[in-house]
Simulated scan of single mutants.
Amino acid sequence: MQALTYPFDRPPENARAMEVAPGVHWIRMPLPYALNHINLWAISDGAGWALVDTGVRSPETAQAWRDVFASAGEAHALTRVLVTHMHPDHVGMAGWLTRKFQVRLWMTRLEYLSCRVTVSDTGREAPIDATAFYRRAGWGEAAIETYRARFGDFGKHIHALPDSYRRLEDGEELKIGDHSWRVIVGSGHSPEHACFYCRELKLLISGDQVLPRISSNVSVYPLEPDSNPMADWYRSLRKIRREVPDDVLVLPAHNECFRGLHARIDALLAAQDQALERLKQLLREPMRAVDVFGALFSRPIPHNDGALLGLATGESIACLNFLLHQKVVACSDDANGVAWYRLMDTAPSPEGVCCAPFYFS
Protein backbone atom coordinates (compact mmCIF):
# COMPACT_ATOMS: atom_id res chain seq x y z
CA MET A 1 0.00 0.00 0.00
CA GLN A 2 1.22 3.50 -0.84
CA ALA A 3 2.72 5.26 2.16
CA LEU A 4 1.43 8.65 3.21
CA THR A 5 3.79 11.60 2.97
CA TYR A 6 3.92 14.60 5.28
CA PRO A 7 5.37 17.68 3.56
CA PHE A 8 5.86 19.83 6.68
CA ASP A 9 8.48 19.10 9.33
CA ARG A 10 6.40 20.43 12.21
CA PRO A 11 3.05 22.09 12.92
CA PRO A 12 2.85 25.86 13.41
CA GLU A 13 3.86 27.34 16.73
CA ASN A 14 1.15 28.41 19.14
CA ALA A 15 -0.63 31.63 18.13
CA ARG A 16 1.07 31.61 14.73
CA ALA A 17 -0.36 31.03 11.27
CA MET A 18 1.76 29.01 8.86
CA GLU A 19 1.08 29.22 5.12
CA VAL A 20 0.62 25.77 3.54
CA ALA A 21 -0.53 26.94 0.10
CA PRO A 22 -1.01 30.39 -1.47
CA GLY A 23 -3.40 32.24 0.84
CA VAL A 24 -4.15 29.19 3.04
CA HIS A 25 -2.83 29.20 6.60
CA TRP A 26 -2.59 26.46 9.23
CA ILE A 27 -3.38 27.40 12.85
CA ARG A 28 -3.16 24.86 15.67
CA MET A 29 -5.15 25.29 18.89
CA PRO A 30 -4.86 23.35 22.18
CA LEU A 31 -7.53 20.92 23.38
CA PRO A 32 -8.00 19.78 27.00
CA TYR A 33 -8.38 16.13 25.97
CA ALA A 34 -6.18 13.13 25.27
CA LEU A 35 -6.19 14.35 21.65
CA ASN A 36 -4.58 17.63 22.63
CA HIS A 37 -4.86 19.75 19.49
CA ILE A 38 -7.06 20.77 16.58
CA ASN A 39 -6.01 22.19 13.22
CA LEU A 40 -7.86 25.24 11.93
CA TRP A 41 -7.59 26.80 8.48
CA ALA A 42 -7.57 30.50 7.61
CA ILE A 43 -8.11 31.32 3.92
CA SER A 44 -7.31 34.75 2.49
CA ASP A 45 -10.66 36.32 1.66
CA GLY A 46 -10.48 39.86 0.39
CA ALA A 47 -9.76 42.13 3.35
CA GLY A 48 -9.28 39.31 5.86
CA TRP A 49 -9.58 35.59 6.53
CA ALA A 50 -12.37 33.08 6.07
CA LEU A 51 -11.87 30.71 8.99
CA VAL A 52 -12.63 26.97 8.85
CA ASP A 53 -13.33 25.59 12.36
CA THR A 54 -12.73 27.41 15.61
CA GLY A 55 -11.46 25.34 18.55
CA VAL A 56 -13.20 24.41 21.78
CA ARG A 57 -14.67 27.00 24.14
CA SER A 58 -12.12 27.66 26.87
CA PRO A 59 -10.17 30.60 28.33
CA GLU A 60 -6.99 29.09 26.83
CA THR A 61 -8.47 29.03 23.32
CA ALA A 62 -9.81 32.58 23.64
CA GLN A 63 -6.35 33.81 24.67
CA ALA A 64 -4.74 31.85 21.84
CA TRP A 65 -7.09 33.57 19.37
CA ARG A 66 -6.23 37.00 20.81
CA ASP A 67 -2.55 36.15 20.32
CA VAL A 68 -3.18 35.02 16.73
CA PHE A 69 -4.93 38.26 15.84
CA ALA A 70 -2.29 40.34 17.61
CA SER A 71 0.51 38.66 15.64
CA ALA A 72 -1.37 38.65 12.32
CA GLY A 73 -2.49 42.27 12.49
CA GLU A 74 -5.71 44.02 11.60
CA ALA A 75 -5.43 43.00 7.94
CA HIS A 76 -6.40 39.49 9.02
CA ALA A 77 -9.73 40.11 10.69
CA LEU A 78 -12.34 37.46 9.94
CA THR A 79 -14.74 37.79 7.01
CA ARG A 80 -16.80 34.67 7.86
CA VAL A 81 -16.61 31.50 9.97
CA LEU A 82 -17.17 28.13 8.31
CA VAL A 83 -17.59 25.06 10.51
CA THR A 84 -17.18 21.48 9.28
CA HIS A 85 -19.41 19.96 11.96
CA MET A 86 -21.04 20.31 15.36
CA HIS A 87 -18.46 18.81 17.74
CA PRO A 88 -17.18 21.25 20.38
CA ASP A 89 -13.55 21.30 19.22
CA HIS A 90 -14.79 22.50 15.81
CA VAL A 91 -17.70 24.81 16.69
CA GLY A 92 -16.93 25.77 20.29
CA MET A 93 -15.58 29.29 19.60
CA ALA A 94 -17.83 30.03 16.60
CA GLY A 95 -20.28 32.19 18.54
CA TRP A 96 -17.48 34.13 20.21
CA LEU A 97 -15.69 34.77 16.90
CA THR A 98 -18.77 35.67 14.86
CA ARG A 99 -19.83 38.19 17.50
CA LYS A 100 -16.32 39.59 17.87
CA PHE A 101 -16.01 40.29 14.14
CA GLN A 102 -19.71 40.73 13.32
CA VAL A 103 -19.58 38.06 10.62
CA ARG A 104 -21.80 35.14 9.65
CA LEU A 105 -21.60 31.50 10.59
CA TRP A 106 -21.63 29.04 7.67
CA MET A 107 -22.66 25.43 8.45
CA THR A 108 -24.73 22.65 6.97
CA ARG A 109 -28.32 22.58 8.20
CA LEU A 110 -28.17 19.31 10.14
CA GLU A 111 -24.94 20.28 11.89
CA TYR A 112 -26.30 23.67 12.96
CA LEU A 113 -29.68 22.35 14.13
CA SER A 114 -28.20 19.24 15.80
CA CYS A 115 -25.79 21.44 17.69
CA ARG A 116 -28.60 23.71 18.87
CA VAL A 117 -30.64 20.70 20.04
CA THR A 118 -27.74 19.09 21.89
CA VAL A 119 -26.73 22.34 23.59
CA SER A 120 -30.33 22.63 24.84
CA ASP A 121 -29.71 19.60 27.07
CA THR A 122 -27.44 21.70 29.28
CA GLY A 123 -28.94 21.84 32.76
CA ARG A 124 -31.39 18.97 32.15
CA GLU A 125 -31.39 15.67 33.96
CA ALA A 126 -30.41 12.66 31.88
CA PRO A 127 -33.63 11.39 30.21
CA ILE A 128 -35.00 7.93 30.91
CA ASP A 129 -34.53 6.96 27.24
CA ALA A 130 -30.80 7.67 27.52
CA THR A 131 -30.19 5.69 30.72
CA ALA A 132 -32.26 2.82 29.27
CA PHE A 133 -30.06 2.92 26.16
CA TYR A 134 -26.87 2.44 28.16
CA ARG A 135 -28.37 -0.17 30.49
CA ARG A 136 -29.40 -2.08 27.39
CA ALA A 137 -25.78 -1.91 26.22
CA GLY A 138 -24.64 -3.57 29.46
CA TRP A 139 -23.59 -0.64 31.63
CA GLY A 140 -23.65 -1.11 35.40
CA GLU A 141 -25.16 1.31 37.89
CA ALA A 142 -21.85 3.08 38.62
CA ALA A 143 -21.39 3.91 34.95
CA ILE A 144 -25.01 5.07 34.69
CA GLU A 145 -24.54 7.40 37.67
CA THR A 146 -21.38 8.85 36.08
CA TYR A 147 -23.38 9.43 32.90
CA ARG A 148 -26.12 11.21 34.85
CA ALA A 149 -23.53 13.47 36.48
CA ARG A 150 -21.91 14.33 33.12
CA PHE A 151 -25.12 14.73 31.12
CA GLY A 152 -25.49 18.15 29.52
CA ASP A 153 -21.76 18.96 29.56
CA PHE A 154 -21.71 19.33 25.76
CA GLY A 155 -23.07 22.87 25.92
CA LYS A 156 -20.42 23.97 28.40
CA HIS A 157 -17.80 23.63 25.67
CA ILE A 158 -19.64 25.79 23.10
CA HIS A 159 -20.27 29.52 23.05
CA ALA A 160 -23.90 30.28 22.19
CA LEU A 161 -24.34 30.00 18.44
CA PRO A 162 -25.68 32.90 16.39
CA ASP A 163 -29.46 32.82 16.01
CA SER A 164 -29.10 32.64 12.24
CA TYR A 165 -26.59 31.05 9.89
CA ARG A 166 -25.73 30.66 6.21
CA ARG A 167 -26.47 27.10 5.07
CA LEU A 168 -23.75 25.08 3.32
CA GLU A 169 -25.02 22.53 0.79
CA ASP A 170 -23.37 19.52 -0.81
CA GLY A 171 -21.83 20.35 -4.18
CA GLU A 172 -22.06 24.13 -3.96
CA GLU A 173 -19.07 26.20 -5.05
CA LEU A 174 -17.87 28.88 -2.62
CA LYS A 175 -15.76 31.76 -3.82
CA ILE A 176 -13.23 32.45 -1.08
CA GLY A 177 -10.67 35.05 -2.03
CA ASP A 178 -9.19 34.19 -5.43
CA HIS A 179 -10.29 30.56 -5.52
CA SER A 180 -13.36 28.35 -5.67
CA TRP A 181 -13.98 25.69 -2.99
CA ARG A 182 -16.52 22.90 -3.46
CA VAL A 183 -18.49 21.68 -0.45
CA ILE A 184 -18.47 17.87 -0.11
CA VAL A 185 -20.85 16.62 2.57
CA GLY A 186 -20.46 13.28 4.32
CA SER A 187 -21.89 11.64 7.40
CA GLY A 188 -21.29 8.88 9.91
CA HIS A 189 -18.97 10.74 12.26
CA SER A 190 -21.55 13.52 12.45
CA PRO A 191 -24.88 14.20 10.74
CA GLU A 192 -23.87 16.39 7.76
CA HIS A 193 -20.11 17.01 7.86
CA ALA A 194 -18.73 19.53 5.34
CA CYS A 195 -15.35 19.13 3.65
CA PHE A 196 -13.93 21.79 1.31
CA TYR A 197 -12.11 20.93 -1.93
CA CYS A 198 -10.16 23.48 -3.98
CA ARG A 199 -9.33 22.12 -7.43
CA GLU A 200 -7.02 25.02 -8.34
CA LEU A 201 -4.88 24.72 -5.23
CA LYS A 202 -5.20 20.91 -5.03
CA LEU A 203 -6.31 21.08 -1.40
CA LEU A 204 -8.90 19.19 0.64
CA ILE A 205 -9.91 20.49 4.08
CA SER A 206 -11.12 17.15 5.40
CA GLY A 207 -12.23 17.98 8.96
CA ASP A 208 -12.70 14.67 10.77
CA GLN A 209 -13.83 12.73 7.68
CA VAL A 210 -10.27 11.64 6.78
CA LEU A 211 -7.47 11.73 9.35
CA PRO A 212 -3.96 10.39 8.66
CA ARG A 213 -3.01 8.59 11.88
CA ILE A 214 -6.28 7.93 13.71
CA SER A 215 -9.82 6.97 12.73
CA SER A 216 -12.82 9.09 13.62
CA ASN A 217 -15.41 7.87 16.10
CA VAL A 218 -18.63 6.61 14.47
CA SER A 219 -21.30 6.23 17.13
CA VAL A 220 -24.94 5.52 17.79
CA TYR A 221 -26.49 7.82 20.42
CA PRO A 222 -29.59 7.48 22.61
CA LEU A 223 -31.45 10.05 20.49
CA GLU A 224 -31.58 7.63 17.53
CA PRO A 225 -30.80 4.15 18.88
CA ASP A 226 -31.57 2.16 15.72
CA SER A 227 -29.55 4.39 13.35
CA ASN A 228 -26.88 3.02 11.02
CA PRO A 229 -24.07 5.62 10.93
CA MET A 230 -21.46 3.02 9.97
CA ALA A 231 -23.19 2.55 6.60
CA ASP A 232 -23.14 6.35 6.21
CA TRP A 233 -19.42 6.36 7.06
CA TYR A 234 -18.62 3.78 4.39
CA ARG A 235 -20.63 5.70 1.78
CA SER A 236 -19.00 8.99 2.69
CA LEU A 237 -15.44 7.68 2.44
CA ARG A 238 -16.18 6.15 -0.96
CA LYS A 239 -17.80 9.39 -2.10
CA ILE A 240 -14.72 11.44 -1.17
CA ARG A 241 -12.46 8.92 -2.93
CA ARG A 242 -14.64 9.18 -6.04
CA GLU A 243 -14.97 12.97 -6.09
CA VAL A 244 -11.53 14.17 -4.94
CA PRO A 245 -8.34 13.36 -6.90
CA ASP A 246 -5.46 11.63 -5.18
CA ASP A 247 -3.01 14.47 -5.84
CA VAL A 248 -4.48 16.81 -3.20
CA LEU A 249 -2.77 17.95 -0.05
CA VAL A 250 -5.14 16.94 2.74
CA LEU A 251 -5.63 19.44 5.56
CA PRO A 252 -7.12 17.38 8.42
CA ALA A 253 -8.54 18.51 11.74
CA HIS A 254 -6.02 16.44 13.69
CA ASN A 255 -2.47 15.16 13.15
CA GLU A 256 -0.50 16.60 10.21
CA CYS A 257 -1.14 17.68 6.62
CA PHE A 258 -0.55 14.74 4.29
CA ARG A 259 -0.57 13.41 0.75
CA GLY A 260 -2.00 10.02 -0.14
CA LEU A 261 -5.76 10.57 0.21
CA HIS A 262 -6.87 7.46 -1.68
CA ALA A 263 -4.41 5.20 0.15
CA ARG A 264 -5.62 6.53 3.48
CA ILE A 265 -9.29 6.02 2.58
CA ASP A 266 -8.50 2.48 1.40
CA ALA A 267 -6.73 1.79 4.69
CA LEU A 268 -9.64 3.16 6.74
CA LEU A 269 -12.14 1.03 4.82
CA ALA A 270 -9.97 -2.08 5.10
CA ALA A 271 -9.45 -1.57 8.83
CA GLN A 272 -13.20 -1.25 9.39
CA ASP A 273 -13.83 -4.38 7.31
CA GLN A 274 -11.34 -6.27 9.47
CA ALA A 275 -12.90 -4.98 12.68
CA LEU A 276 -16.33 -6.16 11.56
CA GLU A 277 -14.94 -9.59 10.70
CA ARG A 278 -13.42 -9.86 14.18
CA LEU A 279 -16.75 -8.80 15.62
CA LYS A 280 -18.64 -11.47 13.67
CA GLN A 281 -16.26 -14.15 14.93
CA LEU A 282 -16.81 -13.00 18.51
CA LEU A 283 -20.59 -13.09 18.04
CA ARG A 284 -20.62 -16.84 17.57
CA GLU A 285 -21.49 -16.61 21.26
CA PRO A 286 -24.11 -14.13 22.57
CA MET A 287 -22.50 -10.83 23.55
CA ARG A 288 -23.57 -7.45 24.91
CA ALA A 289 -22.30 -4.19 23.41
CA VAL A 290 -19.84 -3.79 26.30
CA ASP A 291 -18.46 -7.29 25.66
CA VAL A 292 -17.19 -6.59 22.14
CA PHE A 293 -14.68 -3.82 22.85
CA GLY A 294 -11.73 -6.17 22.46
CA ALA A 295 -12.69 -6.96 18.86
CA LEU A 296 -12.94 -3.30 17.89
CA PHE A 297 -10.37 -1.33 19.89
CA SER A 298 -6.65 -1.75 20.42
CA ARG A 299 -6.67 -0.46 24.01
CA PRO A 300 -8.61 -1.46 27.12
CA ILE A 301 -11.82 0.50 27.83
CA PRO A 302 -12.13 1.03 31.61
CA HIS A 303 -15.71 1.26 32.81
CA ASN A 304 -14.80 4.02 35.26
CA ASP A 305 -13.79 6.40 32.44
CA GLY A 306 -17.17 7.86 31.51
CA ALA A 307 -16.07 9.71 28.37
CA LEU A 308 -14.10 6.82 26.89
CA LEU A 309 -16.77 4.28 27.82
CA GLY A 310 -19.41 6.39 26.09
CA LEU A 311 -17.36 6.65 22.87
CA ALA A 312 -16.55 2.94 22.86
CA THR A 313 -20.16 1.94 23.55
CA GLY A 314 -21.49 4.24 20.83
CA GLU A 315 -19.07 2.87 18.24
CA SER A 316 -19.69 -0.73 19.28
CA ILE A 317 -23.44 -0.24 18.80
CA ALA A 318 -22.73 1.42 15.45
CA CYS A 319 -20.90 -1.74 14.34
CA LEU A 320 -23.61 -4.00 15.77
CA ASN A 321 -26.39 -1.98 14.12
CA PHE A 322 -24.53 -2.17 10.81
CA LEU A 323 -24.58 -5.98 11.05
CA LEU A 324 -28.22 -5.93 12.20
CA HIS A 325 -29.21 -3.91 9.14
CA GLN A 326 -27.34 -6.41 6.96
CA LYS A 327 -29.28 -9.20 8.70
CA VAL A 328 -26.00 -10.88 9.65
CA VAL A 329 -26.69 -10.55 13.37
CA ALA A 330 -29.79 -11.03 15.52
CA CYS A 331 -30.53 -9.22 18.77
CA SER A 332 -32.71 -10.09 21.75
CA ASP A 333 -33.33 -8.77 25.25
CA ASP A 334 -32.90 -10.77 28.43
CA ALA A 335 -35.19 -10.51 31.44
CA ASN A 336 -33.29 -7.43 32.67
CA GLY A 337 -33.69 -5.55 29.41
CA VAL A 338 -30.07 -6.04 28.33
CA ALA A 339 -29.48 -6.59 24.59
CA TRP A 340 -27.57 -9.68 23.45
CA TYR A 341 -26.25 -10.02 19.91
CA ARG A 342 -25.32 -13.17 18.01
CA LEU A 343 -24.62 -14.34 14.49
CA MET A 344 -27.79 -15.46 12.76
CA ASP A 345 -26.60 -19.05 12.34
CA THR A 346 -25.73 -19.60 16.02
CA ALA A 347 -27.82 -20.72 18.95
CA PRO A 348 -30.60 -18.44 20.26
CA SER A 349 -29.56 -15.75 22.73
CA PRO A 350 -31.23 -15.15 26.12
CA GLU A 351 -35.05 -15.04 25.93
CA GLY A 352 -34.78 -15.71 22.16
CA VAL A 353 -36.83 -12.70 21.08
CA CYS A 354 -35.54 -10.75 18.08
CA CYS A 355 -35.74 -7.01 18.62
CA ALA A 356 -33.90 -5.26 15.83
CA PRO A 357 -34.43 -2.47 15.09
CA PHE A 358 -35.38 -1.40 18.60
CA TYR A 359 -37.13 1.61 20.12
CA PHE A 360 -37.56 3.07 23.57
CA SER A 361 -40.75 4.60 24.91
Rank of each mutant, 00 (worst) to 15 (best):
L105W: 02
R299S: 11
I38A: 09
D247K: 07
W65P: 08
I27C: 10
A130F: 10
Q63S: 11
W340F: 14
L35E: 09
R109H: 14
D208A: 06
L237M: 13
G55V: 01
E125D: 14
L282S: 12
W139L: 15
A3C: 06
T54H: 07
M29E: 08
F196D: 04
Y197V: 03
Y6I: 08
A75H: 11
V20H: 09
R284P: 00
P212K: 06
V91W: 07
P286A: 00
P357Q: 06
D67Y: 01
P162R: 10
A263H: 03
V81G: 09
P88Q: 05
D273F: 01
K239G: 02
W181N: 03
N217K: 07
A130W: 09
M86R: 15
D305Y: 03
W65G: 02
H325L: 05
K327H: 14
Q272E: 15
E224K: 10
G138R: 10
R235V: 02
A160F: 04
G48S: 04
T122G: 11
R66P: 01
D246S: 05
T313P: 08
A50H: 02
D67A: 12
L283R: 04
G260E: 04
D45M: 08
T79S: 15
A126R: 10
R259Q: 14
F360L: 11
A253P: 05
A253E: 05
A339F: 11
H303G: 11
Y147I: 00
D163K: 12
A312N: 02
T54L: 10
G186S: 09
P30D: 02
D247W: 04
L211P: 01
A270C: 08
L261E: 02
T5K: 11
L311A: 11
F297G: 03
F154P: 08
L211M: 15
G73F: 02
D208P: 05
G171S: 02
C354G: 10
T61R: 07
A64V: 05
G48C: 09
W106V: 00
A70N: 12
R238A: 11
E125Y: 09
D178Y: 06
R80Q: 13
L268G: 01
T346M: 14
A47S: 14
V328Y: 03
D45N: 07
E169K: 14
P191A: 13
Y33C: 10
I317M: 13
L249S: 01
V185F: 06
S180D: 09
D273W: 03
L282D: 12
L324F: 01
I144F: 07
F358L: 10
R66K: 14
I38F: 04
K280M: 12
A17I: 04
M107C: 10
L35N: 09
F258Q: 08
A253Y: 03
I43C: 07
A318P: 06
P11T: 01
A62I: 12
T346E: 13
Y341H: 05
I301Y: 06
M107A: 02
L113K: 07
H262Q: 06
N39W: 03
S164F: 05
R99T: 00
C319N: 12
S298Y: 08
V338G: 06
I128Q: 15
M29T: 01
A295R: 09
V329S: 08
D170M: 06
D266Q: 07
